[in-house]
Design a binder for these strands. Structure first.
Lengths: 337, 337
DNA sequence: TTGTAAGCGTTATCAT
DNA sequence: ATGATAACGCTTACAA
């Protein structure tokens, strides 16, 4: 438990050359003879030499680390995105540090501040909120290292972001419900201040407008917790109501909706048609199978990581690097029939 | 993008004292006067000083980083465990680096070897396999820094591990199926060489034995991919068969089973009773609702992280620190009626 | 109570 | 082609 890793100094001593020769040989410098390189490389391999990353980071101010900020690791969307990120980051020889924000702005701010210490070369983040005035932590860090947003983003800041087509998807989902006969459609979201939610809502509103259906304030529900949304839904459905469709932009709130429908014996899709954003492989096995808008979570992660690495390696500059990836719509029984 | 963080040297110059005074003051050393400390602390706060972690790591050979090795990030069980890990690790001021092994032993070996470089103070790992003879990478690293296993482990090595009661759960699940009338029960797993699978299988076998039901080789299925298990299941169910129960130890394979049952019009639970390990919040909403054994994933992550930190801080030593946490059994319609 | 200096393991500059 | 040396930012003897 106390042994320590071998260093260049030890190799140098063993082979009777200087440390700089070792360093140069290992980085394949042209100023080292071929046989010397060979000798050093094979000895290093034999003793399984591993360069100390802290020494290298300190010396070069390059860490080969990148940080990811995610609201909730145990969310099918974010864990898929993380998977995508991981796949490209490690491929390129970078390490991945993860931070969970739990959707708390204060936590996010603390992490951004902390990362000013040079621990990482760049940051991938799905932000907690895009509220104007609460972005100083982001612009400060952005002055130090590259940042790329994925999913949630702050539109006012000149920071590249990879998102899915939330607006179009919200529009299509709502249009679909209308075409299936719905006239009183509920929108469910987390918070207007989250870019994703506001975009999906905009799509919902535009679809209603296009079809000449008046938008009703009481049909637009926001909530930050599953218990709370259940309460809100209960309040709405337990009393006389006309709701005949639901467009949920939050996967786990849709489960609450299903629970409530079971409880109140509301038949999906006969009395209520439902479509929801989701990345769960379970949706097709639900009762009834859930119609879903599936964001390309894995690809979003991959693209974001790829872009960030390019920024870190200065192969690209922050001019119009945003990318929008399309969601997949999957109509199942919950919105048909 | 090129500004750099402030250092102790700069603070020292600004305040007209030496670097060591700054260092001592910031670490609240008793050999610094109260007013000096105050002055330095407030200036450091003003300029938002953050110590450079690489310098500290290099100097102290302590990194405040820990690594997690996980087979698959986008798996409800592992992502929950990761969530648990994250919650305690960051609470204690440590950073978390993640590595996905994709269940490839070679990948796992490479990561273990890499981590001999001193990047992290300790490692949390769910291993790819416990095959004897393929554990040298583990014992090597274990000679350098503490390791704690969670979920999957290698029993022959003196490394602490946190698991759930796989054997008992396998036993209970199988017993449950038998009591519901099943006599020809399928076991589905990934690979015998994975500790979790072998324990669950042992529980299955013992339950059969206890009830006097002969164990049949052809009822024990292993597979490393979803497509393959589907093929195996298809082969079994498409022909004449007597299978009347399934105990699946792999969440995602259970979805394949449901798919097949739909396809072949096999009625669950009437013709086939099913119980499965799972951490998905969707199981109660399935058609039919799935009976599940729910591992305490979050708690396992928490416990493992907690233990590792104690080992790192030498508050505990590796003597019998293993912990077994109980799963929750949830009987739904898929195994009843 | 504070300062000086060495050293952690690298890489890079400047000699030779 | 190779070696000596300084530096990255920090902590910690050792001096004063």
């Amino acid at each position: 438990m106390n042994k320590t890793n071998i260093t260049q100094k030890q190799i140098a001593k063993e082979l009777g050359v200087s440390v700089s020769t070792i360093s140069r040989a290992l980085s394949d410098s042209h100023e080292i003879s071929a046989e010397q390189k060979q000798r050093i490389a094979s000895y290093a391999a034999k003793v399984k030499y591993q360069p100390n990353p802290h020494a290298t980071s300190l010396r070069l101010s390059k860490t080969k680390n990148i940080a990811v900020l995610i609201p909730d690791l145990s969310n099918s969307y974010f864990s898929l995105a993380l998977n995508g990120i991981e796949s490209v980051v490690h491929d390129k020889g970078y390490n991945l540090m993860i931070y969970q924000t739990n959707d708390h702005l204060a936590t996010e701010e603390a992490i951004f501040r902390y990362l000013e210490n040079g621990l990482v070369d760049g940051v991938l983040s799905a932000v907690s909120s895009n509220t104007k005035g609460y972005v100083e932590h982001v612009s400060r860090l952005n002055g130090l290292i590259p940042i790329t947003f994925f999913d949630r983003c702050i539109n006012d800041l000149p920071i590249p972001h990879i998102t899915c087509n939330d607006y179009e998807s919200g529009f299509s989902a709502t249009k679909h419900l209308i075409e299936k006969g719905c006239r009183n459609i509920l929108f469910i979201g987390i918070d207007k201040s989250i870019s994703v939610t506001s975009e999906r809502l905009r799509g919902y509103i535009d679809a209603l407008q296009l079809k000449g259906i008046p938008e009703k304030k009481e049909y637009i529900l926001f909530s930050e917790s599953a218990e709370d949304i259940l309460k809100q839904l209960h309040h709405l459905f337990a009393n006389k109501h006309q709701v005949d469709g639901v467009f949920s932009s939050v996967e786990r709130y849709t489960l609450q909706l299903y629970t409530l429908c079971n409880e109140l014996d509301i038949k999906i899709p006969d009395q209520l048609k439902v479509i929801s954003f989701s990345n769960s492989p379970f949706v097709s096995f639900m009762n009834p199978p859930l119609s879903v808008i599936v964001p390309p979570a894995f690809e979003i992660g991959k693209e974001a990581a790829h872009l960030l690495l390019q920024l870190i390696q200065k192969k690209k500059y922050i001019t119009d690097l945003n990318k929008v990836l399309p969601c997949t719509l999957l109509f199942n029984k919950s919105s048909l029939g």
